[in-house]
């Protein structure tokens, strides 16, 4: 049975260490993969994910329930991923450029899965807000309302960004088949 977010919050209040372990058990993998899809390189994703959870711990007393707990966590994770990209001078984005050989330098990318690599390349041709909206909808199956909570926009904007992103991805796949 999946752990309820409210139970996690209660557990943290009752026993911070145990509660925080429950939080990580629930969010560690999805948050890592969310970050990984944005930053691409495993080591960058590892650093950003670690920083995300430390920040979550430091900021827990600033969570007032004004948005869903998941959205709050994903918002911190998204910001950490974008900070990492900025810090690396957009190295990760360049890494997905077909003309850049650094994409092939990451030991934790399976290049033999050509279609999957192509889809990630397509996603990384999108503006950041469309990438985030697409990833949260397509991979994390968030509602548009939740995506809006993560991105600080509206459900309508999230929906629009998702559909724009998907159209562009389909177009990219067609032209780069």
């Amino acid at each position: 049975m999946p752990i309820d977010n409210n139970d996690i919050i209660k557990a943290i209040k009752a026993n911070p260490e145990q509660g925080f372990r429950e939080l990580m058990s629930r969010f560690m993998e999805p948050v890592y993969w969310h970050i990984r899809r944005l930053v691409v390189a495993h080591e960058d994703a590892q650093d950003a994910a670690q920083e995300t959870f430390v920040r979550i711990y430091r900021s827990l007393d600033q969570y007032y329930g004004e948005r869903s707990f998941s959205a709050w966590i994903y918002r911190i994770a998204t910001n950490e991923a974008l900070r990492m990209i900025e810090r690396n001078n957009r190295r990760a984005c360049r890494a997905l450029d077909e003309t850049d050989t650094s994409f092939t330098a990451d030991a934790y990318i399976d290049y033999t899965d050509v279609e999957a690599v192509q889809l990630q390349r397509a996603i990384h041709t999108l503006p950041t807000k469309q990438q985030v909206a697409f990833n949260l909808r397509y991979y994390d199956e968030m509602s548009y309302e939740e995506i809006a909570n993560v991105t600080g926009s509206t459900a309508g904007a999230a929906k629009s960004n998702y559909h724009l992103a998907k159209d562009k991805i389909v177009e990219y796949l067609k032209t780069n088949d």
Binding site: M24, M28, W33, R36, R37, D110, A116, Y139, V170
Partner: peptide, 21 residues
């Protein structure tokens, strides 16, 4: 996007998530 679905070309080292935790 059926050619790929949710499959990603990314992977992680063994025991990565336990170590990250």
């Amino acid at each position: 996007l059926n050619g790929v679905g949710k499959r990603m070309p990314y992977n992680v080292p063994v025991d990565f998530f336990a170590k990250l935790e």
